[in-house]
Structure formats: structure tokens, C-alpha cells
């Protein structure tokens, strides 16, 4: 009888743990959600830049030597002073001021789409550029591990690794808040071909690391929806410190006004 009771107790234990095991199994079997599926805001659509800042450096070509606001070091200044737009045109490098560290600051519309479930694509009117913001494919939907490019060369738009910003989890006893996407898209771009932060030859080097934060805001009381891009350029070769700008775009209902424009050196 005693052995029967013991067997019965073992059976109880096995049966009791089945639902918990099943729960774990269910979680383990769920495929990870794609970055597109967990996007905290809708970044897609047509957006137009609204140029209420730095007008004279963006809407017209700045004068040679007009480097105000940029924390250029001496080497950066010397390099900027050699700016020659005709030379750039002749060399086929008229897109130098349309690279990733600068292109979000160039007036124009942008078109944001999901190229795949793990890649956001930005097309620009200005310079007809395409940026591909790739989420790390092998570190989960919010991973930041760089993906491998088939051709690991320097380009105007470089290699951009995207991730959703995560909220903190808190600390101390009973901490139990899971991390979650908090609204911002973070993009880190490297492998950049040397270019210009401004059209008048303010340089950035291939050593540049570009960090961007994309935030969708609104709708405001009048229905406006804004995209704000905070841009942080780090270039130990030409800058004294980090170079901060933030650019704002207003959402458009459609692409009716879309009018791509080729790169211009001046």
C-alpha cells in the first residue's frame, strides 16, 4: 500500500508540472517577431523636410569658408578651404554632400518603406539616394550586431545597422518590468566614403561613425505628424567633438509631389 501511495505521489508531481512545461514549450516554439512586426510607430510614408533652421546653409549653397556651427578642427578647416565644386563634378563626385551624415539635412522629400521585414528603406528626392537600415538578423528583432554586406566597400550611404530603442527594466528587488521598444529607431552607420557635411566642402572622413535617432511625433492638434531625426556625427579626423543636428519632416498624404533630383556639387 505504501508503494502505491508513493507511485501515486510521483504521478501527481508529473501531472502537476505538465501545464508549466507546456507553457515553456509554447514560448519556445513561437517564432521571433520581426522588427517590422514590433515597430512602435509607423515610420513609413512620404515626408517633407521643413527648413526652419540653418536656412542659409541648406537652401542655398553656402559661401566657401562659411563653417559656422560646425565643430571643425584645424585639419577640417584646411580641407574645407580646398573645396572646389568643379573638381568634384569632373571627378564624378558630385554626390559628396548627399552621404548619410548629410543627406537628412538636405531639403527635400523622403520616402520610407519596409524593403523586407528586417530592412527599412529611405529614398531621398535630393540626390536620388537610397539608404538601407538593416536590423541585425542574427541577434533577434532588436539586435544591433552588424549584418554582413556582400561587398564591404565604402559608399555614400555606408552600412547602417538599425535597432529599436529599448526601455529599461528597472533594478533592485522584485524588478520585473520587461524591456520593450520605446518609440525610437536607432541607426548606426559606418563604412562611409568621405564626403561633405555641407555643400561648401565641410568634410567628414571614412572614419566617421554616424548615430541617428528617428522619432515619430503626433498627431498634433491640427493633424500634423512629424518625423524628427537626431543626427550625431563623430569624426576624429575633422571634428573637435560630436556634431549634433536634428532635422524635422512633416508627413505627406501621398507621393504626388515626389520629384527626385540629381546630385549637384554646388
Amino acid at each position: 500500500m505504501r508503494s502505491a501511495v508513493a507511485a501515486f505521489a510521483v504521478g501527481v508531481g508529473v501531472v502537476a508540472t505538465m501545464p508549466l512545461a507546456a507553457q515553456r514549450g509554447q514560448r519556445g516554439q513561437q517564432p521571433p517577431l520581426s522588427p517590422r512586426a514590433i515597430a512602435p510607430r509607423d515610420f513609413t510614408g512620404y515626408w517633407v523636410s521643413v527648413v526652419t533652421e540653418d536656412w542659409r546653409w541648406r537652401m542655398v549653397t553656402p559661401a566657401k569658408g562659411d563653417y559656422d556651427s560646425v565643430p571643425l578642427n584645424a585639419e577640417g578647416r584646411r580641407t574645407a578651404d580646398t573645396w572646389d565644386p568643379k573638381r568634384d563634378e569632373a571627378a564624378g563626385e558630385q554626390c559628396r554632400s548627399y552621404g548619410a551624415p548629410a543627406v537628412m539635412r538636405v531639403p527635400g522629400r523622403i520616402h520610407v518603406t519596409w524593403e523586407t521585414d528586417t530592412t527599412l528603406r529611405i529614398d531621398t528626392e535630393a540626390g536620388t539616394q537610397t539608404r538601407l537600415l538593416r536590423f541585425g538578423s542574427d541577434t533577434g528583432p532588436t539586435g544591433v550586431r552588424p549584418v554582413s554586406d556582400p561587398v564591404d566597400s565604402l559608399t555614400w550611404q555606408g552600412r547602417s545597422v538599425a535597432s529599436w530603442e529599448l526601455s529599461g527594466r528597472g533594478g533592485g528587488m522584485f524588478s520585473r518590468t520587461p524591456s520593450r521598444p520605446s518609440g525610437a529607431l536607432k541607426v548606426v552607420t559606418t563604412n562611409l566614403k568621405a564626403g561633405y557635411l555641407r555643400k561648401n566642402g565641410v568634410p567628414y572622413s571614412p572614419n566617421t561613425v554616424l548615430t541617428e535617432y528617428f522619432n515619430v511625433l503626433g498627431p498634433e492638434d491640427n493633424g500634423d505628424i512629424w518625423l524628427v531625426v537626431t543626427t550625431i556625427v563623430q569624426d576624429p579626423q575633422y571634428l573637435n567633438g560630436r556634431f549634433f543636428t536634428s532635422s524635422h519632416f512633416k508627413k505627406l498624404p501621398d507621393g504626388a509631389a515626389w520629384h527626385p533630383d540629381a546630385c549637384r556639387a554646388s
Binding site: V48, S49, M59, T61, P62, D66, P107, S266
Partner: peptide
């Protein structure tokens, strides 16, 4: 404040 204004004033170097 909109990009299309550049077409109105033309290519200018400040």
C-alpha cells in the same frame, strides 16, 4: 521653409 522654394529662387551661392 519648404524645399520647393529653391526652385523659385534658383541656384544661389551665398
Amino acid at each position: 521653409m519648404y524645399p520647393d522654394f529653391r526652385a523659385k529662387i534658383g541656384a544661389i551661392t551665398s
